[in-house]
Amino acid sequence: MKALDQEPLDLIVTGVGGQGNVLASQVLGRALLAAGYQVTVGETYGLSQRGGPVMSMVRVTQEKVMGPVIPAHSAAALVSLEPLEALRVLGTYGHPGVVVLTNDRPLLPLNVIAGADRYPELAELKQALSENCAKLYWLPATETALTLGNPILANVIMLGALGATGLLPIGAGEMEAALGAMFPESKMGVNRRALAKGAELAAAA
């Protein structure tokens, strides 16, 4: 078990209900636990699934048992499946040293669809994120997922990207093994490709 650079290593996975946020955080949790770490994964769902913002908190330590809630402004990394949610969560959990990985594909809130609110220009959003984090990975995860045949794979692509940042004490192999424990082998081919694509995107960012 590799020593952690920081203790606890606090990660946030956020997005919109239905994007596979819980699955992504569960893969992280399983992979880290298998590597011998203490992991606490706090999930928010329920009503939040119905189009609202969702967030999972993954807390990693060597020994200590952590609560399921990360204190404000102390996440080490923020993985967002939707760009607007990245900035929303950055507002509460961000700090100058946070690393942000976000899918660049917007999902419009209903209030934006209705014309009651405005979705920011992507350039504005990208700038606001990059100016307020240590490093921004602005990744075409949904677009890449569509080339793999299913937009839902954006979550696994983002995991692949996270694995390639060097922030985790584990690598792609552990995540693949965790996915393997959750999916039948017939679905693992596309999941492996998604992990690899994510790593490529992060390396190129």
Partner: peptide, 18 residues
Amino acid sequence: RVAERVAALVPPREFGFC
């Protein structure tokens, strides 16, 4: 700075039927 950016750019996300 972050609070200002969030207030300026991030609208709420209403719950809705799927």
